[in-house]
Design a protein around this nucleic acid. Structure first.
Lengths: 183, 183
DNA sequence: CTTAAGTTTCAGAAATTTCTGAAATCACTG
DNA sequence: CAGTGATTTCAGAAATTTCTGAAACTTAAG
């Protein structure tokens, strides 16, 4: 299992970006390799394609599975697991956003609500700030839920509207809401 | 500088979430503390509020400044630097998204374009996959650029449209585009 | 039941990241 | 321009994360 120079570069890049994306180098590399492979790969192929230890591959695949980013495949008469990434890139994007929301936002929303439940703490500014943050996050996750429901076709349409968007918003909802604050 | 229990919990939470957000514990804590403080704080107040070393505070503040997440303030007759977070939460959101895009997306887009420039590498599947990924990222960043331009009022309106969004898209852009792929 | 292929777990090694205290730098004041 | 208060830098210590090899586990076949 030798990688082409193109695969090499792509895989290395994903490895380097891994830490910025909240996964580790190996996980990034495994994902990149699967992403570029037209055929599903098994753990051994990944291990030697990336020159890492077999156990590291196993950990990485487990991590990718917990992210829902890989699909399992089997072949007749071969009991090894084979892995792929979803063909449809939009599905990958949806998964990524959903998982990041789950890991990076939901816990904080829960915590903010919990803090508000504890009742007045005698620090009006902090309490107001927390409430405001909670409201903002709720608005954004509400919007996310709506986008999530849209079929890919509609999403693509929305994304390609370009500068038409502003006019659309104005036409749709009547007057602009009154502002209560200025930054 | 003693923190109230509310501040304590909030600060600790941001510290714990820090690593998931791509910053370290201290940076998360410093930010949380500033976020809840109605008054700007100087490095010493932060240092002893969080019981960390003075140099760690300095590093953390530098990091936050590189993220554009804090504002510098000065007082008459006091030459120490005081720090705050922007009052307007929407501004914070905008900054966060812009910075994450810069760190997590732009380098990859650059790399993908560079790989395509290198010309045919004799791996059709990988090449197609890379092109497809590049196109998708371009579409998404194009959409981001549009959203970025919107004033907060319009953004809020869009976000609160809820289920009206789908209908709006259909009405605005004529027929749905034909699909070329199914996942 | 035994064997063997495949996979996962886990304790410690290696690497990386974060944090500290001391020293260096900066910049204002008298 | 010396002195002082504030801040930054930096080398090493501490903590955390990642990676490995060996052992344990799982499952199917003979």
């Amino acid at each position: 299992m030798t990688l082409t120079p193109l695969q090499q570069e792509f895989v290395m890049h994903f490895g380097e970006m891994g830490s910025r994306w909240g996964i580790n180098r190996t996980v990034g590399q495994i994902y990149a390799l699967l992403f570029l492979s037209s055929e599903p790969l098994n753990a051994e192929q990944i291990t030697d394609g990336l020159s890492i230890s077999r156990s590291n591959t196993s950990m990485g695949l487990k991590e990718l599975q917990s992210w829902n980013l890989v699909r399992l495949k089997h072949f007749q008469g071969d009991r090894r697991d084979y892995f792929t990434t979803p063909e449809d890139l939009w599905e990958i994007v949806r998964i990524l956003i959903a998982e990041r929301k789950k890991r990076e936002i939901d816990p904080t929303l829960t915590k903010l609500r919990q803090l508000e439940m504890q009742g007045p703490a005698g620090d009006d500014y902090a309490e107001a700030r927390i409430a405001e943050l909670r409201e903002l996050i709720e608005m954004m996750t509400g919007f996310y839920d709506e986008m999530e429901k849209l079929e890919t076709e509609r999403l693509v349409k929305l994304m390609t509207f370009g500068s038409k968007i502003a006019g659309l918003i104005d036409k749709a909802g009547g007057a602009l809401p009154t502002l209560t604050k200025r930054s």
